[in-house]
Design a protein around this nucleic acid. Structure first.
Length: 557
DNA sequence: GTCCGAATAT
DNA sequence: AATATTCGGA
């Protein structure tokens, strides 16, 4: 369908009603796309059969503004369509991400190639191809084209401003178009066809665009104006440690030197997320696997030069080994118990890092420690229950874990070394969270052992834990004499644990001995209280034929 | 209102 | 899997 700029000018609520020919052999996929498009007020004509689609455009070629065609991996049919529908801006789409296929599509005139599954943003913006074509159709003279475009844009803009209250996505898109196409890119764009397709907009104003658009489209602005804003704002300040945390927080002073990378969801469709690289010593970013470094400075300067909406975009902190090292040092310095995000943040003095970032990382860090730590201080457990030496977790796992290095207990200070080993000993990006020799990351598939033994309460990390204190001491007390039989399932419970450890008698004995020698303490998990029968039998075996009368009054304490 | 930590989402 | 975001509670 030939859609001219003046058509657009007359078009109420563009792109509402834009007619989309959808050709997809897969009817499921087709209907999915269709419904998405329809939600955006496109009018969709679905074809699962290519011949039908071809005859449709042949007979009533005016009926469509744009086509979306699935490139089936099996046939070349879709290319035929492409050739047959030269006048129709055609977007090809496929699960097949093969470059040569894409190339072929483009070569044959496709205005864009979209990877499936299609994301909504891309669908929403397909109208741009129509607009682009309209603005370029049959206009030989650039100045004429520009004039037309300008008029069109302006009139559209005015119309939209009038309908302010019913502002919806389309109008916003249009405004975007007006501004940018008119004032900035049109002269360049008008003499070549390449689609200005949504996601493929090149550089320049994109960030601003997105920022604005985002602000308008979803009402997330106010949300980000709170704490988050304060933290992610780029403020160039210099504060020293003497300043109070709060002030620092409020000033967003940790956000110095952040490098941001513009979100690049462009043509390649590879969702390369924005990334923030908080590094004062960013030279040693040896593992920049994302290869985004080039963009960093670009985005950064962009940010500096213009508005800072950029920051609104999701930015991911890249926890490089160096950064993690800082983190761990901070945690150590504070002591695990006092290590809270804001303090860690202060100590780290990494610009651009937010408390949220740290909190998130801290969460992961703790989770990890929960796995490696119990082994370490398990042997010290009996003395750490008074709460004084209690570490981060109030309810220390009681089940004796075998320690990984039985002969090499780590001194408390060394329990959480900064780095167990030089990073160079590990594959790029590998992070060490614990002392040398520990599995850096116990693999989750090894955690399932916890479920094998219901009698042991396991926490979410798979560590057996003490029941909360309100269960009271009575919980601990015996129906079974220790030693009657090893706790049922104990072995099973260990069979698949993180360390592939199969407990031997010694371990069990130690637990049992501990329990026997300190009967006033709660019974370690995994040990069942002895049954009365068992107790009686044992007593009998020791030559005590019956329970002394007063014994019954003792009862459980 | 701020911060924390866990839960949940991406 | 890693990180961000959300949510409930202090």
């Amino acid at each position: 369908m030939v859609c001219t700029a003046s058509d657009l000018q007359e078009w109420k609520d563009f792109p509402k009603g834009l007619k989309v020919l959808l050709l997809d052999q897969d009817s499921d996929s087709a209907s999915e796309i269709r419904s998405k498009l329809e939600l955006m007020d496109y009018v969709v004509f679905t074809f699962c059969n290519e011949d039908e689609a071809l005859s449709a455009i042949a007979s009533k070629s005016d009926s469509f503004h744009i086509a979306m065609v699935e490139v089936s991996t099996s046939s070349n049919g879709s290319f035929e369509f492409l050739e047959a529908a030269r006048d129709l801006p055609t977007i090809m789409m496929s699960n097949n991400h093969c470059l040569s296929t894409i190339m072929k599509c483009i070569a044959l005139g496709a205005v864009e190639f979209l990877h499936k599954p299609l994301c909504e943003d891309k669908l929403r913006n397909i109208w741009q191809h129509v607009a682009h074509k309209a603005f370029n159709a049959g206009v030989s003279e650039v100045s004429e084209s520009l004039k037309l475009v300008k008029e069109t844009s302006v009139s559209m803009l005015q119309r939209q401003l009038k309908n302010e209250e019913q502002n919806n996505d389309e109008s916003r898109e249009m405004r975007k178009l007006s501004v940018h196409e008119t004032d900035q890119e049109m002269s360049a764009a008008s003499d070549k066809y390449p689609a200005p397709s949504t996601p493929q907009l090149k550089g320049g104003a994109r960030l601003l665009d997105d920022g604005d658009c985002q602000d308008q489209t979803n009402g997330t602005v106010e949300k980000e104006s709170g704490e988050q804003d304060g933290e992610s704002k780029f403020v160039e300040t210099t504060c020293d440690d003497s300043m109070s945390e709060n002030i620092q927080e409020a000033q967003g002073q940790r956000d110095r030197d952040v490098l941001v990378k513009e979100e690049d969801d462009s043509a390649n469709n590879s969702k390369c997320e924005s990334m923030i690289s908080p590094l004062s010593e960013n030279k040693d970013r040896s593992h920049d696997v994302h290869g985004c470094n080039d963009n960093l400075s670009k985005a950064s300067s962009l940010h500096n030069s213009a508005r800072t909406r950029v920051n609104r975009k999701k930015m991911k902190v890249d926890w490089t080994p160096e950064l993690h090292k800082k983190f761990v040092q901070a945690v150590e310095q504070l002591g695990v118990d006092q290590a809270i995000p804001s303090r860690i943040l202060d100590l780290m003095k990494v610009e651009g890092l937010t408390r949220h970032n740290v909190a998130s990382h801290l969460q992961k860090y703790r989770m990890h420690r929960r796995h490696i730590l119990p082994k370490e201080d398990e042997r010290r457990w009996p003395h750490s229950r008074d709460g004084v030496t209690r570490s981060y977790y109030p309810h220390r796992p009681i089940m004796a874990y075998p320690t990984h290095h039985p002969g090499h207990p780590l001194p408390p200070g060394a329990a959480y070394p900064v780095w167990g080993a030089p990073p160079s000993n590990h594959p790029a990006g590998m992070q060490m969270w614990g002392p040398p020799g520990y599995l850096p990351w116990p693999s989750p598939e090894n955690w399932h052992w916890k479920t094998a033994y219901p009698a042991v309460q396991a926490d979410v990390w798979g560590c057996p834990v003490m029941p909360p204190s309100h269960h009271g001491p009575s919980f601990a007390f015996p129906q079974n004499a220790p030693g009657c039989h090893p706790p049922d399932g104990l072995e099973n419970s260990f069979a698949g644990n993180s360390f592939d450890y199969h407990p031997d008698e010694e371990v069990i004995d130690n637990i049992v001995k501990e329990a026997i020698s300190k009967p006033w303490l709660p019974l370690p998990l995994g040990l069942k209280p002895p049954s009365t029968d068992c107790v009686l039998a044992e007593l009998s075996r020791q030559g005590i034929p019956s329970i002394p009368p007063h014994a019954a009054q003792l009862g459980p304490c």
